[in-house]
Design a protein around this nucleic acid. Structure first.
Lengths: 132, 132
DNA sequence: CTAGTTGCAAAGAGTTTGCATGGCG
DNA sequence: CGCCATGCAAACTCTTTGCAACTAG
């Protein structure tokens, strides 16, 4: 892990605090600038998000249609070895920590020679609530 | 499937022909405009890509970092029920038609209540060649 | 004091849209 | 002939960058 030289600033603190307070939700930049608890210029916000992602404190996702990125708090180190399901309708992100997926990863590696990066792969579909 | 009213134009023909001639490759808009065999204005190109995707003749992907979309010929109807692996290094797209994935889909549906859309989900990672 | 940080505004990349002209059927 | 498509330019969205002032350590 390469060390990142950086100061501790109140702007980045505000951003991280907000994410920590909503660990189960994803936010796009627009959501964040609309927050009254985040008083940070847009450029600084982008720089903070980028830094926090590199530090592993946040996780960045991209919408399936490619229209913009969204970010979420990444508290567990376990996130490195689990998959994410994202509902196409309500946007909910589900963390799936399940042995079956480990098996799948192994299967793909041994039978198809492909090393799946679970942190960069998201399965899209419909959650329980939105299936009607 | 809703019918799409549209004329048969030589511009769309050029675009589709090009994709059909390179069924195993992905192209971004920049790639396409650089092709001498595709003489189409940028706006028309976007409109053609959008239409061809809606018709199911092309498939749209988005880079894992969210920086732009890419498109690929979608010849098999079977694509509706198989998964895609995309190499983060060389960009190769692998179609994975495998019973294991069907099982996975079923497992996620029954045990996690989530209906995975295989057409919209891509697993990212490293292919055999790029794992070194 | 020094090096990293901020905010603003400007610049970029990718994509969409308005509109007059042109082409398919 | 009617309706859809094209091409251009302008508009838009999202994100990055240059720069002078500022601040953490």
């Amino acid at each position: 892990m390469g060390e990142i030289r950086s100061y501790h600033t109140k702007q980045r603190e505000m951003v991280l605090q907000f994410f920590a307070a909503h660990p189960d939700q994803c936010f796009c930049v627009k959501d964040l600038t609309a927050q009254k608890s985040i008083l940070v210029g847009t450029a600084t916000l982008y720089r903070a998000l980028s830094l926090l992602c590199r530090e592993g404190k946040l996780k960045k996702y991209t919408e399936s249609d490619g229209s913009g990125a969204f970010y979420q708090y990444n508290d567990s180190e376990a996130c490195h070895c689990h998959f994410h399901l994202k509902c196409l309708r309500c946007g909910q992100l589900i963390h799936m920590d399940c042995g079956f997926m480990k098996d799948m990863q192994e299967h793909i590696e041994t039978d198809h020679g492909f090393l799946v990066d679970s942190g960069k792969s998201i399965l899209y579909g419909l959650c329980q609530k939105c299936r009607h």
